[in-house]
Design a protein around this nucleic acid. Sequence first.
DNA 1: GTATCCTGTGTGTACGTTAACGCAAATATT
DNA 2: AATATTTGCGTTAACGTACACACAGGATAC
Lengths: 350, 350
Amino acid sequence: MTRRDAITVKDIANMAGVSIGTVDRVLHERGRVAPQTAEKIRRIIDETGFIPNLHASNLAQSRTYRIGVLTPLAEQDSGFWQLPHEGMKKAAEELKPFNVTLLFCCFDRFSRTSFLEAGQKLMLQEPDGVLIAPVLPEAAEEFINSLSEKIPVCCFDSDLPKSRKLAFIGQDAYASGKLAAKLMKLMVPDGKRIAVIQAVRQDYHIRDRIAGFQSAFSRDECPSVYVEEQLEDKPTRNKFLLGILYQDPEIKGIFVSNDSSHLIAEYLRSSGKTGISLIGYDLIPENSRFLGTGDIDFILNQRPAEQGYLGIQTIFRALSGQPAGEKHIVMPLDILTAENVAFYPARHLM
Amino acid sequence: MTRRDAITVKDIANMAGVSIGTVDRVLHERGRVAPQTAEKIRRIIDETGFIPNLHASNLAQSRTYRIGVLTPLAEQDSGFWQLPHEGMKKAAEELKPFNVTLLFCCFDRFSRTSFLEAGQKLMLQEPDGVLIAPVLPEAAEEFINSLSEKIPVCCFDSDLPKSRKLAFIGQDAYASGKLAAKLMKLMVPDGKRIAVIQAVRQDYHIRDRIAGFQSAFSRDECPSVYVEEQLEDKPTRNKFLLGILYQDPEIKGIFVSNDSSHLIAEYLRSSGKTGISLIGYDLIPENSRFLGTGDIDFILNQRPAEQGYLGIQTIFRALSGQPAGEKHIVMPLDILTAENVAFYPARHLM
DNA sequence: GTATCCTGTGTGTACGTTAACGCAAATATT
DNA sequence: AATATTTGCGTTAACGTACACACAGGATAC
């Protein structure tokens, strides 16, 4: 509770035999300082380990930070995108003293036009940084390239390896598939069959999940992949699943490579099929429910709320001149099941 | 990047027709304000939703926060206590602009005297708040009671239900036991036997874990509990485990109710026993290693680093006058296995 | 040779809050 | 009744940084 006595610009100025104005100009690289003077000041700053007082700086500047967010519409993917949004809002809440404002711009994840429109709309609001879920890789890449170099960009959920960016925040999709395979093998007796369901075609990390899953099996027992992009449509879904299970009655495990496992669970339950183990992704409310009832055995979670939270924090750090962290922030692969799902509330960010 | 125009004490003062000094006195309940005036100011603050500028406040005060930390010695429990320490340091790092200093005081977890000594030593340094791991419940309770009411206290790891405290940060031990049972049942064939190992006698949450584990079994298949407090000692350990496995060769699963599973894994490996599934607690380096080699099947993690992090944050929030959060901060029950352990670095706090 | 521009530097005010201090008026003490 | 204390309120100097402005001296232009 006592006073502290940290070093200040004034101290630096005294040591260098100049005024605080000159030190300030060096600190902010605003020019108008003689090269030798600047060098001397920089040396002293280095030696003393001087760090400008955050509060004084903020008080004097009272600048605002506008961070743009580009994600699919909140209601798409069974409401999945609400989860990262929650995390972003929490970050914004914590950063309130720093005047951080979020500019949410959502797009239809199946429409390139919609994405580009959202991007344009966002840029009209002049964001200082952008956080983006590049589910439409090419369009997102194009968008990032069109941005000024000064605007920091962060990707989350899926990566954009070739684009300029501060960091990618997400899970290791391949490893998550391997993990799913391990759990599946625990549940499905030897000799029985396993099916993989792919509900999205283009997404890279969906493919990685499937590749990881299959990598855990030998060639002759490798599970088949069934693709159906219209799972949301009930008649289509029923026909699709009936077809799979009729064709191969030995299937005792289903791996769903995205958030749609609740749709499969609902089918299995309503059609009275039992004894089929089910593993899926993403703790959206519907999946959470079916975990509780035991219709889904495991859900792998990629901490979407945390991804959103970290995305905002990372961009803020860059904007406020703090040193950049890692280029790839890897999310743990959380295993969710009936017995622990209650302890993973969406808002649990820490 | 524009200026903002938040409401200030000056605005409040103008609206109330008083000076900023009076408003400040009301804000800090420093007295010397006429009751009606104070009431009026409070009303206006409420109506306008005024929040004092954090930075200005901090700049003017530049106070320091000293937070005391009481935990067992870092090297005890196979180095477990280093993990919460890491989290605390990370929190301190983030709170550096607020002049937060940590005062670590460690004690021997088996010695009441040692604990009381550590407590006294801590109090000599006049901490503003205390974070404590009450592994010695009675002594800890006594210590907390001896503290001034003004000093906020937080418990983590295990709880102290009867003591005054800001919050308890920890997992639901009973639920974690149930979860372990579910995983164990997946691995151990029906009809085979399971053993429970208890390495610590006094700790409440160890008992809860065991109770939770047993609750998942019917009376006649309920696993037996074997107690041995000297597991660290190799000859004792070997004799103990040999005894168990000799006496009951049908044991195909072992549930270790604390961080000692690596000791069991080492025995099983060195004695050539295979086909015995192993579940334990806490991601200390040794356990992490045996997870990787497949000698331990699952580790349940209680996010110790995060507990430390949240403990410091919680106390800081109280000290800096921010509203208190929940009384019980529940940690998720993370399931760790060979396939995902790499993504749970100790420092992964978010 | 004067007018204009640039360079390098110092000065001063603002940011919003805190808390010490000052000073009347009201109240208590003797 | 005189003196001491308390109450209620205003004033003001920090806290450390940012940045606009002032200003002297040198370079450049005409």
